[in-house]
Design a protein around this nucleic acid. Structure first.
Length: 113
DNA sequence: ACCGTGACGAGAT
DNA sequence: CATCTCGCCACGG
């Protein structure tokens, strides 16, 4: 048997949460990590998003850091794509930071519960 | 097998 | 209140 069971399973968990983010809202890496029980592993969520970038149905632009800052915009096809996508969702971004992040923030552990 | 890096976060100074 | 450091786990060289 395949003893080398990949943890890709948790990657998929992240994708599911990202796809569950309602339009006009966004969440943070740490929030997803915390929801999945990976608390402290926020970096892993970011790493998962890197792989997610290869997937068509993963809207990584709805995931930012804890400050609502577009830290990962540089990883998109273009440095402005993340802002454009967020703007398309009705989220206003200024200086690479989401405006009114406190309201835009969508915590799966609280809202999705 | 070891070291360094990384789309982060929280605590300490 | 701003800045620094350490911790988290996984992957690349």
């Amino acid at each position: 048997m395949d003893t080398s069971l990949k943890n890709n399973n948790y990657f998929e968990q992240v994708y599911q949460v990202v796809q569950l983010i309602p339009k006009g809202r966004a969440t943070s890496y740490g929030a997803i990590a915390n929801y999945l029980g990976l608390k402290g592993g926020a970096r892993m969520v970011g790493w998962a998003m890197n792989a997610a970038h290869a997937l068509p149905d993963i809207e990584a632009h709805r995931v930012t850091n804890r400050n609502g800052q577009l830290t990962g915009k540089m990883h998109f096809s273009t440095p402005t794509e993340m802002e454009e996508l967020l703007d398309a969702d009705g989220i206003q971004v200024t200086n690479d930071q989401i405006e009114d992040w406190k309201t835009i923030f969508w915590d799966p552990q609280t809202e999705l519960l």
